[in-house]
Design a protein around this nucleic acid. Structure first.
Lengths: 220, 220
DNA sequence: ACCGCGGAATAGGCATGGCTAAATCTTAAC
DNA sequence: GTTAAGATTTAGCCATGCCTATTCCGCGGT
């Protein structure tokens, strides 16, 4: 049951996207996938059928999609590549955190086992990437990051940021400008009603933070 | 005259191969290219026509192929990526020299400008890779490496290896086992007639070295 | 139970980048 | 000068992955 390694970057991207949607609690439909990957719905249907033939997903027409154990392993391997690369690019090559995602997006598909190991070793076998996302182990285990969204945090209580659930460069730059990085300490001073912005304090500075951004910041 | 950046990895591979053949003094024909890239001759003809349309090569049916200035720039950029990566993987990630070529072969196509710069900076803007091959500068200049083939070296005279003109892992492992790396000191003790093997001394050890391998080792 | 609407699947195209087989050109031998 | 061998090009095919247009399903409203 193991032929493997005939997977193209496209296969990997789909499997990864399925995993991401699923782990985010979204129902994995072909159109959700298409939307995530910025392709036409028909393209997703097509590829999902191929993944099904490869035994990486279970799929019946008009039903939602799920990864098989084999598919999950593939997803976790790609994710491991991605997050190791993000951390490496950030820590060893000093790329700013808003750049590492898109770089890793391309590099993850051409990373050999040997290079993966070398990178992991150079980083001291780390467990989280620069956004606080956990790095799966080689045998496909991910530790879940405990914490709550900043939007739900107790007022006037200092929290430590453990994770930032964003990839797009613009918003990461914006958060970075306020020093809202993992390990930073942040306090919510006031919360506007009706899901309005939060007044927060980071690094001695006060900022207003939109509610939807606060939902993406996980603290402890 | 500059639209660029619609180049696929395949385009880059062809342009690089044309540059390599040309710089090695081989006449660049479609079949030489096909042979170099391990594709069928017809495939090479096809792609060369596309490169010609892109203005990267000059080509008339049944004639040999040459890079245009634009094509040469592309080739040198790819080569810069390749050799920077080789050096980086070798020096910073401790991959053995026989592995770096094939790793770089895949990575070179997905290296952004920013990452290229970061790598070059991390290495201190080096000029040669682990095989002694010169690294083109960003503006497309290559310094030629002076030296002569070990097969032509004077007897009983110590030389320093400056370059090893091989990529395949097996032979690099073989040379590595004898410590025949760039910067190593080597002395030819005896040369067998009829292009026979050379008796050499490296690192206090005596070895017999086939003539064709000696031709690939450039010393000074 | 029926209808219709929207989401989902199929059909059919297109570009890339390979391939093989057939036709064609070059060249060198007779 | 002809011709045959070998290299080169053309023709036509296939797989990948994307697309648009069309058809089909299934569910909510009546």
């Amino acid at each position: 049951m193991d032929e493997e390694k005939i997977l193209t970057p496209a296969h990997e991207d789909y499997v990864k996207a399925i995993y991401m949607l699923y782990s985010r609690g979204v129902e994995v439909t072909n159109s959700a996938l298409a939307n995530q990957l910025k392709v036409a719905p028909a393209s997703a249907t097509n590829m999902v059928k191929k993944l099904s033939d490869l035994g990486l997903v279970t799929y019946e027409p008009y039903q939602s999609i799920a990864l098989t154990p084999a598919g999950e392993l593939v997803a976790l391997e790609v994710l491991r590549h991605h997050r190791l690369l993000e951390l490496y690019l950030h820590d060893k090559l000093n790329l700013p955190w808003e750049m590492v995602h898109e770089e890793a997006e391309r590099l993850e598909h051409v990373l050999s086992e040997a290079l993966e190991d070398a990178i992991a070793a150079a980083l001291g076998n780390p467990t989280v990437d620069p956004h606080g996302d956990p790095i799966p182990t080689k045998d496909g285990k991910v530790e879940s990051v405990a914490g709550l969204a900043l939007s739900l945090a107790e007022l006037k209580h200092p929290y430590t940021i453990v994770r930032v659930l964003l990839q797009d460069a613009e918003r990461l730059i914006y958060l970075g400008a306020m020093q809202l990085y993992p390990n930073a300490t942040v306090t919510v001073l006031k919360r506007a009603p009706f899901d309005g912005p939060l007044l927060i304090e980071v690094d001695g500075e006060h900022h207003a933070l939109a509610h939807d951004l606060a939902e993406c910041i996980i603290v402890k």
